[in-house]
Amino acid sequence: MNIRPSPRTLAATALAALFLLPVAAAAQAAWPAKPIRMLVGSPPGGPSDIVTRLFAEHLSQRLKQPVLVENRPGVGNSLAAGVVAKGEADGYTLVVSPDTVVTVNPLVYTKLNFDARSELVNVSILAQFTQMLVCNAGKNLHTVPDLVARAKTTRMNYASGGPGVPGHLAAEMFLQSAGVKMEHIPYRGPAPATLAVLSGEADCGFLATPTVLPHVKAGKLSALAVSSREPSPLAPEVPTLAKALNQPALDVSFKLVLQAAKGTPAPVLAELERAAGDIMKRPEVRAKLQASDLVSIGGSSQEAEAVMKAETARWEPVVRRLDIKSE
């Protein structure tokens, strides 16, 4: 038997709903009501860590809440991203990832427990970074033509921080553009990869400029090129890969993107997007990042999504051609 509610009951229910609406709105508006965790998938000192800590400092000042940075290195930066993807979608746990977490890792790492492309929201591209091609100083290689000529006649290798990381991709793009081959030696992170090139265990490697530049200045490594289209402000004398290979359109750069779990409330995402746009365009932030060979961006979520799709289309054929796989 269907029992229709009385007009008085309907009126009482509607009135109660009206009182609850401001409470729900206030709950969302109260964000953040407690400290925010911001994860980074690489060890301290690298581009991701530098950008994350600077952004977190300014975000904390803006939101009047602590923003705590936590390094969770592993699985090509996917370990940290997975924590956020599988966590509460409340805006209190965020991650800053290189674009490879979305563009490449789903193809490379066969046992990931999350899908970065569907379980994470790309809030804003915070910054752009590139790699420097360096070789062990004892190899007597000082220019890209030197390396190309040597690789055509001698078996050579290069180090990276792991399968599918920016250094691996930059190296493969270089080898494809130059028409030569070198053996890839993956290490567990950029620090052991750098040590391998320093010791001569590996001949060369594409590694983050701030990481390797002190060794270049100390004469332990030779800098051959930077992967960006423009010279590095930290080492303007080092040619770009595009110039060294006489391929003006060649630009092997990577993005660092602020991400949140899918399902995070829209007002929270909007505030994070506004914060990123404001913070990353501040002159003092731009200057600090430039001093670490990083380009500040701070674009919209829509722009970030478009870039991720474009970069995925760019790198997927490379990954499939090389059949890059890792557990």
Rank of each mutant, 00 (worst) to 15 (best):
G162C: 05
L289K: 03
L79H: 13
A80W: 06
V252T: 10
N122F: 08
E172I: 01
K34C: 04
R314S: 05
G138V: 11
L120D: 13
S124A: 15
L258E: 05
A310I: 12
P236C: 10
V102L: 14
S227M: 01
A159E: 06
F114K: 10
R4L: 15
A171H: 03
D203H: 12
L221V: 13
Q247L: 02
V83L: 14
L59V: 09
G162T: 06
S124R: 08
L169Y: 05
G74Q: 09
P47C: 01
A306H: 10
E316P: 00
V318P: 00
S296M: 08
G74V: 05
A171F: 02
A242E: 03
S227R: 00
P239L: 03
V123Q: 06
K309Q: 15
T93Y: 03
E311S: 14
V84P: 04
A202I: 05
E201I: 07
S160W: 07
L10R: 15
G263M: 07
R62G: 01
P145C: 11
A260C: 08
V212Q: 01
T52A: 15
V123G: 03
R8V: 12
L120G: 12
G161P: 00
S97G: 06
Y187P: 00
G277R: 07
I36H: 04
K325Y: 07
A171P: 02
I50L: 11
P44W: 12
K325T: 13
Q302W: 06
D278N: 09
L112S: 10
V101K: 08
K217S: 11
T52K: 06
F114V: 09
N122C: 10
L207E: 12
K64Y: 04
S292I: 01
K111L: 10
L59F: 06
E172H: 13
I36W: 02
P7K: 13
K181I: 00
P267F: 02
E305V: 14
L147H: 08
V148Q: 07
I297G: 01
G189T: 00
K111S: 09
G82I: 09
E183W: 01
L213Y: 06
I36M: 04
A291W: 10
V96P: 05
K220N: 14
A29W: 07
P267D: 02
I50P: 03
L213W: 09
K181F: 03
S177G: 00
S177L: 00
